[in-house]
């Protein structure tokens, strides 16, 4: 038994796949898988929506309020006025199955939300921004549009489903990359929902006032303030860019022959 100096061949223990090839295969493959999952989930949520009728939704969420809501005083004038405005707009939605409740959230971020059970939340930030009742009416009409299309449950359902996916993939990298992709795909859907809600809202405004003057004045102000905007950002945002929305609304008004000039109702607070 004697020693003979020899060397093993180099590279036997290393696969010769280039890391970039490996990265490409994985990213493309996983993206496809995630997109497929998203499509299936969206479909499942649609089925669930079909299975849960509005009556059941209303019964379930009758007295429900989100926990982090910072309410204003119950005798705040804006609360009563906004509630009245919502009720008036709702009368133009013939067979609305909801009895809407309005709450004001004390937050400086201008926003409005449609939540399960017919709950509409507007922020004080939004009430400070609007300059006429017509502007506010359109925002509220837009939220009513979400109720009509049941988008509020849709986004809730998708949120639950997405967090389930997160739970399964937690601690792994995909959570980030895959969820970003899923999120982007969902935003695509959500922008279409926003456009549909806009159209319904505008119709309510027209029925209520007989014209659509100042309906989208709020967006015009935002658009002017935010002159230059990033192209990609528009795709990443859940709501369409202000200028896209304005264009869409102007086109709709022109198509329907709704007058864009009329007597504007001032705010009564």
């Amino acid at each position: 038994m004697k020693y003979v100096a020899k060397k093993p061949e180099d590279g036997i223990n290393v696969s010769d796949t280039h890391p970039l090839v490996e990265a490409g295969t994985l990213v493309v493959g996983l993206s496809l898988i995630f997109l497929a999952i998203v499509v299936v989930l969206v479909f499942l949520v649609e089925i669930a929506l079909y299975l849960v009728p509005v009556e059941k939704e209303v019964a379930l969420f009758e007295d429900w309020l989100p926990e982090d809501l910072v309410t204003v005083a119950p005798n705040d004038e804006r609360l009563g006025r906004t509630q009245l405005l919502v009720d008036r707009l709702a009368t133009h939605w013939g067979d609305s199955p909801y009895s809407f409740r309005v709450e004001i959230n004390d937050s400086s971020v201008a926003n409005a939300m449609a939540l399960p059970g017919g709950l509409i939340i507007v922020t004080t930030g939004l009430l400070d921004e609007v300059e006429s009742e017509n502007e506010l009416a359109f925002v509220l009409g837009h939220e009513l549009g979400h109720f009509r299309n049941r988008d509020h449950l849709r986004s809730l359902g998708r949120g639950i489903v997405l967090s389930l996916v997160i739970a399964v993939t937690t601690g792994r990298d995909v959570s980030n990359i895959g969820l970003n992709i899923a999120d982007l795909a969902l935003r695509g859907f959500s922008r279409r929902q926003e456009a549909a809600a806009d159209e319904f809202g505008l119709e309510l405004v027209y029925t209520n006032y007989g014209h659509v003057d100042e309906a989208w004045r709020l967006f015009e102000r935002w658009d002017e303030r935010d002159g230059e905007s990033l192209g990609v950002a528009s795709y990443l945002s859940t709501h369409p860019q202000a200028d896209d929305r304005i264009e869409n609304l102007e086109r709709l008004a022109a198509e329907q022959g709704w007058p864009t000039a009329g007597r504007v109702t001032p705010l009564r607070w």
């Binding site: 696969s15 796949t17 890391p19 490996e22 990265a23 994985l26 990213v27 792994r172 990298d173 990359i177």
Partner: peptide, 25 residues
Amino acid sequence: YFKRVIAGLRAIVGGRVKTYEPLLE
């Protein structure tokens, strides 16, 4: 970091974690 991220992706589908092999070698 790059190879670690790929390894993380690989951990989802399973199989040979090729990017770790050169490191161990």
